[in-house]
Simulated assay, not measured.
Amino acid sequence: MKTYRKVVLLIATILGVLFLLLMASFTTINACAFANQHSVFIKSQTQLAIESSDLEQAKYYAYKALKGINKTKNNFKDCGCENALVNIKQAEQNLKQATKTNSLEASKSFLQTALKSTMISINALEEFEDGDNTTYGNDVLVLNTKQVLNEQGGVILPKAKRLKEAIDLNVSQFEQSLQNVLEHVECGDAFNFISKIHTKTKEKLGDKSLSEAKIYYHVRVKEITYNALLSLEGCPAK
């Protein structure tokens, strides 16, 4: 029983690490999406400020755009797109200047610059999120740098492929731990334990809102647990 508890603890630990890895990856993806959504709002408010016929109205919309930046600044940081972050900060500075001027003409000059920076930020986010659909498609981009050569064998993989490989790596660790269960845990206890994971995974796959990455993860876990259960065929459940 002590061996069983030890292996179960190992499985639980690996599942926890895998969950945190996946959540970190998904958080990055969601952060980019949120940053993009807020950028569209910031752009619209800045445009309304530029179209305003008096200074107070221009400042009103400039403040709304600034509020949008404050709400999403952490999303820009979490996303990891440096170009988008730099430009949204520049937009913020120009919007602040637009609210401090005493003439509509001067305010609109800052607003135009802020709008330009916001547009650059939006484009940078779109390119960053859709990296797999750029000129390079699904091919790899070879960089002749020591860091890349050492860390990735001379290539930088598209974001979606990096996520898939991260999932594969950690799922393989889970598979190895299941093998420990099969080898060291009494047959009936192992069957019950793996059955619970398999059933829960199938339930998760019934969620229609799952992203492609999460579907891939759950399908892999389902396959691994199914194969493990097949190896225990005829084993009495407890």
Rank of each mutant, 00 (worst) to 15 (best):
Q112P: 00
M23S: 04
K208T: 15
E56I: 05
N102S: 11
I224T: 12
L20R: 01
N94Q: 07
N144M: 15
N192W: 06
C32M: 10
L115R: 00
L85I: 14
H218I: 06
Y136S: 06
N87G: 03
I122P: 00
Q112C: 03
V142D: 04
I194A: 06
D78A: 12
Y226M: 13
K59D: 04
L125S: 10
L125W: 12
D168C: 03
L22N: 10
C81V: 15
G206Y: 04
K64T: 04
S107H: 09
S107G: 08
S117I: 08
A65I: 00
A106P: 00
I14Y: 04
S103D: 04
L111Q: 02
C235P: 02
V7T: 11
F193W: 07
N170Y: 14
E51V: 00
T101Y: 12
K73F: 15
I122M: 08
Y60K: 02
S52T: 15
L125M: 08
Q152D: 14
N227S: 08
V155D: 04
Q176D: 10
V185M: 08
A33W: 09
E233Q: 14
A190M: 14
S103H: 03
A24N: 08
N133V: 00
K64S: 08
E175G: 07
R162C: 09
N133I: 03
L85M: 03
Y63L: 02
T113R: 05
T46D: 03
A124V: 06
N75C: 11
F76M: 05
L15C: 06
G68Y: 00
K64G: 03
A98H: 07
E126R: 01
A24P: 01
A91I: 07
N102A: 08
L125A: 06
Q90N: 07
Q93N: 13
E151Y: 14
L48R: 07
S107F: 05
S211F: 15
T27I: 13
F19Y: 11
A228T: 02
Q173P: 00
D54H: 08
L55K: 05
G137E: 09
